[in-house]
Every structure is written in C-alpha cells, then in structure tokens.
C-alpha cells in the first residue's frame, strides 16, 4: 500500500497552496502520494504537474472541498495503488487542444 500524505491548503491564500504542494512534491519518496484538500480546482497547478510527469486525480468531497491526488507516474507502487483507488477521477491530458 502506498503512503498517503495529507496536505490541507483550504485556508491558505494564493500562492501559498501552490508553494506548499511544490515543497511536498520535492520531498515525495517512492511509495508515497499526496492528497491535497483545496477550496478551488487548481487548474494551472494541474497543467504544471502533467508537464512534469505527475498524474492527478480530482474529485469533490462531501465537505465541499476538492480532493486532489498527486503521484509520480514513474513510481510503480503509488501508481498501482492510486489507479485502483482514484482511477475513475484521473484527469487526462487533452492532446486535442491546440488552439
């Protein structure tokens, strides 16, 4: 089982949520993934994560906060676990968008 690191940024003002998640990502070990709790969908962050080899799953929790799950695509333990747990909400890169 991969280890979940919970990061609640729901009461932080921009750009602190962004800084906090990058800080955590730099420390992320193999077999770990991040569950970020945010009041907004951080779309620009998701673009950056995709461009840098991370997979992202996003869903709206019952509390109204967004749950954003982030794991390294190259980490087989986290990828297998996250795909099983959060696979239905994975955000796919939209390759058709070329405007």
């Amino acid at each position: 089982m991969a280890r979940e690191i919970i990061l609640d940024v729901s009461e932080l003002e921009p750009p602190q949520p962004f800084e906090e998640v990058l800080k955590q990502l730099r420390k992320l070990q193999a077999g770990e993934y991040i569950k970020m709790l945010h009041r907004k969908q951080p779309l620009p962050l998701i673009q950056l994560l995709h461009e840098n080899g991370y997979a992202v799953s996003m869903s709206n929790s019952p509390s109204g906060l967004w749950e954003i799950i982030i794991w390294k695509m190259s980490d087989p333990v986290s990828a297998a676990d996250c795909n099983t747990q959060f696979g239905t909400n994975i955000i796919q890169a939209d390759v058709s968008s070329n405007r």
Binding site: P44, I46, M58, N89, A93, S97, R99
Partner: peptide, 12 residues
C-alpha cells in the same frame, strides 16, 4: 462536478 472536458492548457 464533471471534470471531463477540462483543458490542461490553462496558463496562457
């Protein structure tokens, strides 16, 4: 909320 249809190109 539906997350399909989101473009990941959100930073002009």
């Amino acid at each position: 909320m539906n997350i399909r249809g989101l473009s990941l190109e959100t930073i002009p």
